[in-house]
Amino acid sequence: MHAKFRFAALAAATALSLLSGPAAHAEGTLAVYAWADSLAPDLIAKFQKETGIKVTVDAFSSNEDLLTKLQAGSSGYDVVTPSQHFVKIMGDSGLLEDIGANAMPAYRQVLPEWQKPWWDPKGSYSIPLAFGNAGFTVNRDLYKGPVDSWKIYFEPGPELQGKIASLAQPDEVIPAAQNYLGIPYCSEDPQAMKKVLDLLVAQKPFVTAYSSDNIENRIGSGEVAAHFWWDGNSLRLRRNDKANVEYAMPKEGLVGWLDSYVVPKGAANIDNAKKFINFMAEQENATAQYNYYGHSTPMKIDAAKALYNKENAPELFPTVPVKMGQACSPAAQELVTKVWTQLLQ
């Protein structure tokens, strides 16, 4: 998920949208808006071939972008893939179509522990796509020390000073800092949030960049030695590009996320959207999607064909607590913004 602004991915998504497959027999269209690089291109092509529905895939780079687009009205998309707290916000704001998710064939493929979660308690709006967590990755060529605590990242020792990069958005960095300080997510206590600000301000002189794009290059090439990042992305960089990186397991806890397929209110092709979601949930396809994306899957998959296990992908099997990100109240969100504005003012 969360590969924000990745322009290679945008280019890929554009190429994908041009790749319309064998001429559709006028079965209509489907407009998908998903995290950059998240959906397996092979599966999109297969879906087009099987159904004749012409699919276009655009990439978004942050939940906030997606929410803003839906709030502005008539986004023109039929399927979008927000994270859990944004599913909650969108559902509560009436931005999602009730697709009767729990009656869809796709729902029977969802692992029981992910059915009817707090962000969609009745199972009306969403079918999960992938889950994972946010933490930090170190480049092992540059940093040999321990990676068992957020202290290493937020209060870096001399070997990491000036070689740390953070994200451009507060959405996950602040929850991580809250885990480290033992402050609950979405705290409405100004004094507690002041502590978060103090921590981040003290870290700032050692931070090279607050940037959410091009992360694999920065950490893989050793431009920085530690980067705030996501589990599956770190896995893919290590496996696919043979980079000497390690995803940290901070004992204070990682920041969890789960992305779901949802249908925006008033979408033009709701039936096609449901067809697509059901298709992606079929065991064979969910397995292929898991192998492509490299983030954990909330769906039933074919274990024999799955690429990743505890031995070859420790990133996906955290040994520390994972605390799911929450939908903050306006008052709490105000404090988050205040911390971030004062950090970068």
């Binding site: 942050s62 906030e64 090279t208 607050y210 940037s211 306006p330 988050v336 504005t341 970068l344």
Partner: peptide, 25 residues
């Protein structure tokens, strides 16, 4: 400012983006 400056100091553009995005204001 974001790609070359490292986003360490906010500019007007980033500030407006933050308000419409993460800040929801």
């Amino acid at each position: 400012p974001t790609l070359l400056g490292g986003g360490k100091a906010m500019m007007m553009g980033n500030l407006i983006q933050l308000q419409f995005g993460a800040a929801r204001n």
